[in-house]
Each structure stands twice: as structure tokens, then as C-alpha cells.
Amino acid sequence: MLGPNKGVQSFATLAEILSQPEIWRQCLSELESSGAIREILDEAKSRTEWTFIGCGSSFYLAEAAAASWTMMTGQRARAVPASEILLFPGMSVRAAENAQAVVISRSGRTSEAVKAAQVLSQEHRLPTLGVTCAADSQLEEACDRTIRLLAADEKSMVMTRSFSSMLLALQVLAGEKSGKTEIASSLGRLADHFAGRVRALSAQVEEFVSEHSFADYVFLGQGPFHSLAREASLKITEMSCSYSQAFHTLEFRHGPKAVVNPATCLTFFLSEAGLQAESEVRAEMHHLGGLTIAICNRANDAIRRSSDFIFELGFDGPELATLAPFIVPGQLLALFTGVKKNLNPDEPKNLSRVVILD
């Protein structure tokens, strides 16, 4: 619960959310100057089946990274929770000569992630790449190579800038692998573009939350945006203890729409490739009485007519570059909803910053 003098601007979580464009710039600059991406790919030239592994937010990040990898490189990639590596290795481990494992953990100390890296390396002889925001971590010790994004680490419990920054790093890796070196420069332009918008977005989301109260939340996305829906759903559960679900957008018609009523907030992560079909679902849910949030690169007239809140990025660049900024409205919605419920987003109920098992 919040103390009597706790103002929203004093929360570390909000500061970390708002810092993301600058942190992206730092991380991208460090990746370029270190030469780490090129060194990793030189060692992985023959590896064409990539598995991205994580727990919680890092698993949803793994899903976004796997989707980005396949779409950029044309190679097969998938995401697997670390627990599946440990409990069902026969289903989840591909011990092929051309396989590469990427294990993601903000702290580098998450027990399941570290153990998964050890199992993959020692028992299955798979090359492992760790991605973390910590220095000299157990994950780094367990992996053959590690990408460290120290600037993206956080004081708060929930992952915000670490999620988006590690995603950008893996997109740079995929862009370099595909030979599309312009990806890194487009992500740099993205950071500059979003820097001028993030504080206005924060104020807009805070106002929206102050004017509405909801009983439940639904987050919807297709393709690479489905992982964002899952991550945003987790954020509002963590920071506001609200009931939330995530679905593929068009799948929501097939039963789940029964829950829609005026106390339902539906957030749509709208893709450019599927905009028409996804917008039809959004309009249908609006007609059923739900309040709709549209997160998109560019809104058309139909979106403007039947959305209660719109975040329009307006970025001229590859669509996959929009993933990182698209998650930010969901982070802000979660934070301000928690504050409205007199909860402390820096100290969510029942959570610890790192899940360490005996």
C-alpha cells in the first residue's frame, strides 16, 4: 500500500519506464562499439535453428525475439519456458548440430534459467548465449557467450526497460544475421522518435486511467505482437493485481468475447499486415460495450471512430522495430491502475525481484 505522501512521480518504476528511449540509445551504442554481435554471429555461422528461453516476462521476450528472428532471417526459431527444458527435455530440446540456445534473464540469477543453461550446455552439448542486464552473473558463467546490457538494469521488481532493451539487442542480432544492417540504424532512429513522445504518452495514459475503472482487462495481438499482449497482461496483473487475459486477436471471437461488457478494457496491438481483420474485431468489441485501446503505428478513420484511447507511434521504419515502443502503453496502464488502487508498483504483492529456488 502507498504511504500518505507517496506521489506517482516518486516511483522508480515510472522513472524506468520513461527512461527507455535513452537506455535504448545507450544499449545500441554499446553493442555497436563492443563488436559483440559480430563475434557471436561469427561463431554461430552454421547454426540455423534458434531456441529462445526465459521465465515470466523473459519468456514473453523470448517469444518476441523468436518471431523477430524468423521474420528477419527466414530461419526457424521458437520460444520455450526454461521450466520445459528442465521438466520435459524430450519435447523441448533439439540437440542438433545446427542448433543454438539463447537464455534470457534480467538478473542472470533466475534459478530455472541458469539451470536450463547448464543442462543445455553440459548434458545436451548445445552452444548457449546468455542475455542479461547484470555483470558477472551465474547465467554468464553457465553460457558460452553473453550479451550484457548493464544500462538497462532496474531497481524495481517488474521488468520494463530491461524487457524492451533486451528485445532490441536480439533484434540487432537478427538483423546482422540476415545481412540487414540497416536494422540497427532504424532502431536508433526509433529511440530518437519515441523520446519526444513518451512523456506525453504517460500523461495521456494517467488521465485515461483516472477517468475509467474496469473489472477486467484483455490484451490482444497477432504474429509478433501476441507476445506483447501476453507481457502487457502480466504487467497489469503484477502492478495492479487486476484480472487480465491475453489472446490472439481473431481467436477472441471464438468464445472469450462472452466476457465483454462496459467494465472490460480491451487493448489491441494492431499490426500493419493484419490491420483490417484486427480492426474488425476491435470494432465488434466496441459495439458489444467494451472500452477499447488501440496501439498502432498509424490509425485510420475507422480506428479513430471506435477507439476510446489511441496510441499512434507514426514511425517510418520496419514494422518489427515498433515492438519495443508498443509495450510502453501497457506498462503505463499497469502502473497508473495500480497507483489508482493504492498499490505500490515498486513493491508488487507476493513478488520478489528474482525467483531463486533452493
Rank of each mutant, 00 (worst) to 15 (best):
T249H: 05
A215T: 12
A299W: 03
G196D: 13
A169E: 02
K340D: 10
F311Q: 05
L228R: 01
E280Q: 13
T110H: 06
L18R: 13
Y217M: 11
S306W: 02
G3K: 14
P262L: 05
I37E: 04
R199W: 02
R25D: 12
L14H: 06
L149V: 06
K155A: 13
E251L: 03
A117C: 11
T337L: 13
A99L: 03
R106E: 03
S307W: 03
R148V: 14
V93G: 10
G289K: 05
S178F: 00
F219E: 10
F88A: 14
V8W: 08
V103E: 11
A203I: 00
T337D: 11
V172H: 04
T249N: 09
P81I: 03
D346T: 12
L313I: 03
S156M: 05
R106I: 04
K115R: 15
V259M: 15
K6M: 15
A101F: 05
S68C: 13
L291Y: 07
A101E: 03
L335E: 08
F326I: 00
F309R: 10
F52T: 02
L129T: 06
S137P: 08
V339D: 12
S202N: 08
E272M: 05
T132G: 09
I310Q: 12
D216W: 05
R304G: 05
G108C: 09
S227W: 00
A12I: 01
N98G: 01
A299L: 07
I53N: 13
N98W: 10
R304T: 05
H124N: 06
N350F: 10
H193E: 09
K115L: 14
L2I: 12
R353E: 08
M91N: 15
D42K: 14
A203C: 11
Y243A: 12
Y217T: 09
L129R: 04
E141W: 00
K180S: 09
I40T: 04
L343E: 10
E182A: 11
A334D: 04
L129E: 06
F269P: 11
L313D: 08
Q245Y: 11
E30F: 01
T249S: 15
L86F: 03
S244W: 08
A321E: 00
S279G: 15
P318I: 04
A66R: 02
A12V: 03
T73L: 01
S242D: 08
K177A: 12
Q26V: 04
L291M: 15
F59I: 02
Q331M: 10
E207A: 15
L87N: 14
G7L: 13
E182Q: 14
D358H: 12
D42F: 02
W24Q: 04
S68A: 15
L313Q: 08
R189L: 08
R25H: 14
G54E: 06
D358P: 15
V103A: 14
A152N: 11
G223M: 01
G289C: 10
A79N: 06
G223E: 07
C133P: 07
F208D: 13
F194G: 10
